[in-house]
Design a protein around this nucleic acid. Sequence first.
DNA 1: CGAATAGTGTCTGTTAGACACTATTAA
DNA 2: TTAATAGTGTCTAACAGACACTATTCG
Lengths: 242, 242
Amino acid sequence: MATTETEFLRDYDPAKFERPSVTVDLVLMTVSGRTLRALTIHRDSHPAAGKWALPGAFVGIDESLDAAAKRILKDRAHIASAYLEQLYTFGDVHRDPRMRIITVVYFALLPEARFENLRTQSADRCLAKIEVDGTADRIKLFDGDGAALKVAFDHADILALAVERLRGKLDYSDIAFALLPTEFTLRQLQEVHEAIRGTQLNKPAFRRRMLDKKILKATGRFESGAAFRPAELYTFVPEKNR
Amino acid sequence: MATTETEFLRDYDPAKFERPSVTVDLVLMTVSGRTLRALTIHRDSHPAAGKWALPGAFVGIDESLDAAAKRILKDRAHIASAYLEQLYTFGDVHRDPRMRIITVVYFALLPEARFENLRTQSADRCLAKIEVDGTADRIKLFDGDGAALKVAFDHADILALAVERLRGKLDYSDIAFALLPTEFTLRQLQEVHEAIRGTQLNKPAFRRRMLDKKILKATGRFESGAAFRPAELYTFVPEKNR
DNA sequence: CGAATAGTGTCTGTTAGACACTATTAA
DNA sequence: TTAATAGTGTCTAACAGACACTATTCG
């Protein structure tokens, strides 16, 4: 194998070479009604001042990537637990203008109600509405008033990939249930699917498909406060309990 | 936001904190007949001496992750180009006993014939046969003589995840064609699918499904050297040419 | 001609979309 | 009663597995 001396040294003793910094960034997503939302934080200082960024932090030397993601969830979003999954690692050389930063991105899913604890009202953080441009390789963010938000760094690419991943996993995984409370109606489940896919679904076909999977258990209880006929509440049955 | 002083400093000036090393590792896969194979390299020195590991290298400070993957492909496997895709990032604290190393894993797919250039005969590298234990969360490696190979570090987990990813993408992506030469028979295509899935497929149903997708073009040419009736050769038509 | 594989036609069961229908609740 | 949504029954088209069949090539 022909390796140059530089390569040999780098492989032999990497401590002699400058190391990139490593961060974990979090795409914290939820569904409200038929819209997909993600937590973004306003940047007050340069670089990318005035733009909105995903929460993140540097990875500790004695901290696994999963642990770093949990820490960010807790410290930056004040959320004790959520469905967490690694999404992708972004490592372009100039993705951050300050220095070389490689970021391992996780996404976290949780039901809308779990955001109560979070001060989304405070001006510097926002559960931004995600709008997908057609074929899903481009997204736009909007705040509660419908104003477009500028996205910092490569975080728009990250959000687009997160939506793509959700779409891909929707049919064969349990991610939809991570976005719903313990008890939910079939209409709520359908709304989650529609929010992620960005299209409408046929009601009878959707109900049949979900019920045929045998992953739902009817509780016998019904939603309350509905203007009209209340729907039955279901719970999700994880595979291990089937 | 309540952050400790340590956290504040780490976020403010990460240069003051020790950084993990970052490597890129490569799962270089191919299919021969109905078996899935991956390139592994014998470790002569500690740690994990005598075990087999995936090719990898540290990421340069001015090198993107994709570029690092291409460099490893070229320098470590002497292969000019291949289908490359990021798989996952492994970052457990003690995954390497020497020091904290986070590794971004890519997989590379190429047809068996493209391995001609590579000296697989040399004793320190091996196109190991991958055998999947039942539900695909555990794998075993074997050399050409059928002897079991011990796998270094967490590389068995990495290989298992690579197989899982291939299985997940088989039906909706074009990965199978990255494992075949430009012209191939429908039987060869079916063998690739069977190698990845680990199950047999029904021939007429498979042919119909493939031809109905309109992603194959019949060349009018036929394989040669076959013992019996030669099959027609097809080429893959990428989406942009349809 | 015989062996072996290439390639086809057809039956059947499953599933998804479409759509019309009944059921139940609050006002 | 009315408005609005919950939930069901049924028709149809698409598709996959199974299996038997014909076709073609080499020796």
